[in-house]
Design a protein around this nucleic acid. Sequence first.
DNA 1: GTCTTTTACCTCGGTGTCGATATATCTTGT
DNA 2: ACAAGATATATCGACACCGAGGTAAAAGAC
Lengths: 184, 184
Amino acid sequence: MLKLAILGFLRDFPLHGYDLKNRVAALAGHVRPIADGTLYPTIKKLEEAGCLTRRTAPGSVAAPRHMLEITQEGTDQLRRWLRNPEPGFITDDNKWYLVLAFLHHLENPREQAIVLARRREFLDQPTQLFYDEDGRPVPPDRLDSPFRKGLMQIHRSVGLNEIEWLERQMADLNRRAGYTAGTS
Amino acid sequence: MLKLAILGFLRDFPLHGYDLKNRVAALAGHVRPIADGTLYPTIKKLEEAGCLTRRTAPGSVAAPRHMLEITQEGTDQLRRWLRNPEPGFITDDNKWYLVLAFLHHLENPREQAIVLARRREFLDQPTQLFYDEDGRPVPPDRLDSPFRKGLMQIHRSVGLNEIEWLERQMADLNRRAGYTAGTS
DNA sequence: GTCTTTTACCTCGGTGTCGATATATCTTGT
DNA sequence: ACAAGATATATCGACACCGAGGTAAAAGAC
């Protein structure tokens, strides 16, 4: 999850750790701070895996920075993650938003459309959140708790909203993929 | 996170592990399966902490079950978590939905309203997801990636939707809290 | 009769993230 | 001169969760 975000941001332009931290915080979960104890070891691992290189530069304001740059290896890894996201990245909203934030790094519109289709497929299946004592599904209007009612209502409208957008986006991507195929 | 879900479900009625697993899976992240290796150790820990008791019962279909029942201690713990959720449970959508799913176990409408207010406060602050190379915020219409545009658009409409619901719900709760105060 | 599937429970090792803690640099206020 | 605060990087122990693996009991298929 963090690795995807780091490589995704570095693919745009080189950054140092502190900057990355703020950008990831703003994006992930929307403004959940990411701990130092998570970020720096993760950067180290990515460096050891050859996904990024670091270059010490004087700090613009304070202490010296390590400017991080993505490598070809790192770009390949990023694309692999985006091209074929693990199930959690499709079903977990926060993780899915991360995929969406970096999906433009996957240059082929056909591949992008496939990922969107997977999310669409997931959103399509009806969600049943609650069951009664005997395991029977409980429809929203039969729920005692107003909070559970609201939860299901919000969840539903959010899904419809995103499906609509996905639909438009996929149509657009497929059109562009068609042109590309026609001209090749 | 899992602990909250377990105690929350058990507060409704006693369940066995396997049943819990399916209910949590349906609710958390909407239908993300929860691993056995997570569930059973967590149950064990909750039992050791005195939050629940177990009672072996013959399985209705197959192997014998451990029926789990919440204790007073467990109920107290659940209420503490709900009354004062950690920051992540307010800002992380999946975790927040969990809080919402069990908020009815907090019996005081005033306390419920306080929790909703914290979420509202969080949603109220304008979210800036992306920044350019120099650290300047990038508005949606200046984004190159259609996916990032969509992300911001979806994010915004989802937020407005939920704020509207929160508003209605809080008004209702405060009205009820007022009645209670008046009759006491 | 045995074989597979479903129900049901459990352990162990590995990974990802957090929170506390530490250190160094530069700017600004006093 | 010195303290405070923002910038910047790093380590360590703890905890939650996962995935692979294993056990067992009953139902139904062949």
